[in-house]
């Protein structure tokens, strides 16, 4: 199967606010960017892995984690893993930064 890797510019780094979700839509994919206190940017699918769904972009950010705003699950932004006692995983996307532009790598 042919695999295409796409590198998409999605936002200016300086426009993304610290500790706040930045929601983007690429075709039909909803993605949330988060800029942490240490300056790092992570991108995850904007969909809670909770069986009832929900969004993540409005969640509270603490360190490298986001708390799902609907069911309060604690989710790692680094690997998408839901923290115990809940279980699940959110899809994460690789992020690259060049000059002031944030790129997302879609595989």
């Amino acid at each position: 199967m042919l695999q295409t890797i796409t590198r998409i510019p999605v936002a200016h780094y300086s426009n993304v606010k610290m500790r706040s979700g930045y929601s983007i839509k690429i075709d039909n994919k909803e993605i949330a960017l988060f800029k942490l206190t240490n300056g790092k940017v992570y991108a995850i699918e904007n969909r809670s892995p909770h069986p009832k769904g929900g969004v993540l972009s409005e969640g509270l950010i603490s360190g490298e984690y986001v708390y799902c705003p609907v069911y309060d699950w604690k989710i790692s932004l680094a690997d998408g893993k839901v923290q115990s006692p809940d279980v699940g995983q959110v899809r994460t996307f690789k992020v690259e930064l060049e000059n002031d532009i944030i790129f997302i790598i879609l595989e």
Partner: peptide, 12 residues
């Protein structure tokens, strides 16, 4: 508005 109520649409 920008920080809380915007969804940014990106066209590939």
């Amino acid at each position: 508005k920008d920080k809380y109520y915007t969804k940014h649409t990106v066209k590939v």
